[in-house]
Structures are given as structure tokens and as C-alpha cells.
Simulated scan of single mutants.
Amino acid sequence: MGTTLFRYIDLPIGDRAAFELVCARHGFAPVHFDISASGSPGEPAHERLVTVRRAGWVQSYQDRHGQWIRQFEADLTCRFFK
């Protein structure tokens, strides 16, 4: 399994806009988080695993066509990333 590292500015435009909106709603900026994705070569992008890190907190989400952003927001609501 290969790992591709990228920042929020490297996300597809729709994911980036949604991520920025979620961050703003919860008082964060996208730069407060490190994002990486991993997937197998030839695997569709929507099947990748997206990992979000902030300080000592790490959470991974299945992409599923941007579904990870909803799960990320649920974690922000629960103050997972403090």
C-alpha cells in the first residue's frame, strides 16, 4: 500500500471547500491539521483512507466520496481534536 502525503490545498476542490467550511465553523483553520491519504495503486480515490492529525490527536476516515469530512466534523463537534 502506497502512502501519498498532501495538505488541504492538495485536496480536490470540493473536499477542500467543505474542509475549510467545517474548520471555520469550529474555530479552526485548515493549517491547524496535517492530512495524509493512503491507498493501493489502481484503487479509486474514493476508496482511500484519509488520516487527520493535530498535535497528539490522530483519526483516520474512509474517504467514500467525501464522507470523511462529515466524520471529521462529528469529531470536531465532540472536541476530539481539542
Rank of each mutant, 00 (worst) to 15 (best):
Q71W: 04
A37G: 12
H65T: 11
I9K: 11
C23A: 10
G14N: 04
G42D: 14
G27N: 11
Q62D: 09
S60V: 06
L21H: 04
V31D: 07
Q62C: 07
A17H: 11
Q71T: 05
R25H: 08
G66E: 02
C23F: 09
F33G: 03
Q62Y: 07
L5P: 04
A17E: 09
I35K: 00
G42N: 11
H65M: 12
H32S: 04
F33Y: 04
P41A: 14
V58I: 14
E43Q: 15
A24V: 00
A17K: 13
L5T: 12
C23H: 13
Q62E: 09
I35G: 01
M1Y: 13
T3K: 12
E43W: 05
D10H: 07
F28G: 05
V58M: 03
R48E: 06
W68M: 03
F28P: 02
P12C: 03
P12K: 05
Y8V: 02
G14M: 05
D34L: 02
V22Y: 01
G42A: 08
L76N: 07
R64P: 13
R16F: 00
T77V: 13
S38R: 15
T77F: 06
Q71S: 08
I69F: 06
Q59E: 15
R16A: 01
R48W: 11
D63H: 15
Y8C: 05
T51W: 00
R7T: 11
A45M: 07
H32D: 15
G39W: 00
A37D: 01
H32P: 02
F72V: 05
D10G: 14
A74S: 12
G2R: 11
A24K: 13
L49D: 10
P44F: 03
V50L: 11
